[in-house]
Amino acid sequence: MRGLAVLMLLAGASLPALAQTEVGDPASGLRLATTWCASCHQVTPGGAGPSGDAAPSFRSIARMPSTTSMSLRVFLQTPHPNMPDFHLSREELDDVVAYLISLQR
């Protein structure tokens, strides 16, 4: 019984290490978004935005209940008729997703 209790304690202690951590650099994601996305989206909260309002702000995207790291990755890798296809590298995708997720806080 004691061995089982120790095993359970050790397993429980390692659970945080097994939790998936976010990858990507939000600061790099902001730079990419400012370069590529700011002509259609308001990229920073309270920042300058496009002349029209056809595209949602990054903050409103981040705050949608359906927005997760996974949903953003799927969306950004799927061609959309109203959005240019930037062919993001894995690192660029990670960075843009990390920036968008940072706006949830």
Results as ranks from 00 to 15, higher is better:
residue 31 R to I: 04
residue 17 A to I: 10
residue 91 E to N: 10
residue 12 G to T: 12
residue 70 M to F: 11
residue 76 L to N: 04
residue 87 H to Q: 14
residue 55 A to T: 06
residue 78 T to K: 11
residue 35 T to P: 00
residue 87 H to N: 15
residue 60 S to W: 02
residue 90 R to N: 13
residue 24 G to K: 07
residue 40 C to Q: 09
residue 43 V to T: 09
residue 21 T to W: 06
residue 95 D to N: 15
residue 24 G to S: 09
residue 16 P to Q: 09
residue 2 R to D: 11
residue 25 D to P: 03
residue 105 R to K: 14
residue 43 V to G: 03
residue 39 S to G: 10
residue 24 G to H: 07
residue 58 F to V: 05
residue 8 M to L: 15
residue 55 A to D: 03
residue 9 L to K: 05
residue 49 G to R: 01
residue 89 S to L: 11
residue 104 Q to S: 13
residue 23 V to T: 15
residue 65 P to K: 10
residue 41 H to Q: 07
residue 38 A to P: 00
residue 28 S to A: 15
residue 83 M to D: 07
residue 11 A to N: 02
residue 68 T to A: 09
residue 52 G to F: 01
residue 12 G to V: 11
residue 15 L to W: 14
residue 67 T to P: 06
residue 8 M to T: 13
residue 5 A to S: 10
residue 103 L to W: 05
residue 23 V to Y: 01
residue 65 P to L: 04
residue 61 I to V: 15
residue 43 V to K: 02
residue 85 D to T: 12
residue 36 W to N: 12
residue 89 S to W: 11
residue 39 S to P: 00
residue 64 M to F: 05
residue 56 P to N: 05
residue 103 L to E: 08
residue 81 P to Q: 12
residue 17 A to M: 13
residue 52 G to M: 03
residue 26 P to C: 08
residue 92 E to R: 08
residue 4 L to I: 15
residue 4 L to R: 13
residue 102 S to H: 08
residue 73 R to A: 12
residue 95 D to Q: 07
residue 66 S to Y: 03
residue 23 V to H: 13
residue 39 S to T: 14
residue 14 S to F: 12
residue 2 R to S: 10
residue 52 G to L: 10
residue 9 L to Q: 08
residue 80 H to G: 03
residue 100 L to R: 02
residue 43 V to E: 05
residue 93 L to R: 06
residue 80 H to R: 14
residue 52 G to P: 00
